[in-house]
Structure formats: C-alpha cells, structure tokens
C-alpha cells in the first residue's frame, strides 16, 4: 500500500492541474466567443507566416 503515498498526490496534482488550466482559460475570456474560435482556426490568413 506504500504506492498510495505516490499515487494519491499524483492524482490530486493532475486534478489540480486540470482545474488550473480551466481557470486560466476562463479568466482569459476563451469562453466569450466559442463559435468564433471554432471558425478562426479555418482561416488562411496566417498560413504563410505567423501573425506579427
């Protein structure tokens, strides 16, 4: 059962990482325009070179 000492912190850490990513995305207004973001990836504007 010693393995639990590693597994539990790891699972909690992964959960915390997921939560942090979610909060980061939410704070970054990434949920403001879901439709627009889905379409933006199809644009050809910056295919040749990255956006300045």
């Amino acid at each position: 059962m010693e393995i639990l000492a590693i597994l539990i912190p790891v699972s909690l850490g992964l959960g915390a990482a997921g939560l942090a990513a979610f909060i980061w995305a939410l704070r970054g207004r990434q949920y403001d325009d879901p439709k627009g973001d889905a379409e933006r990836i199809l644009r050809k504007d910056w295919d040749e070179h990255p956006k300045p």
């Binding site: 403001d32 325009d33 879901p34 439709k35 627009g36 379409e39 933006r40 990836i41 199809l42 644009r43 050809k44 504007d45």
Partner: peptide
C-alpha cells in the same frame, strides 16, 4: 471564417483603426 477575415482585414487596413476583433457568437 471568411467573414471574420474580411471584416477584420477591411477594418485594420482603414487608417486610424488600431485593432478590430469580431465576436462571431
């Protein structure tokens, strides 16, 4: 997607416009 590019592009090319961002939702 084309609509977004067209509108943002047209507005950004206009002098005096610093930035334009479309919200499709």
């Amino acid at each position: 997607a084309t609509c977004i590019s067209d509108v943002e592009g047209a507005l950004r090319r206009h002098s005096g416009v610093r930035d334009a961002r479309v919200n499709l939702t």
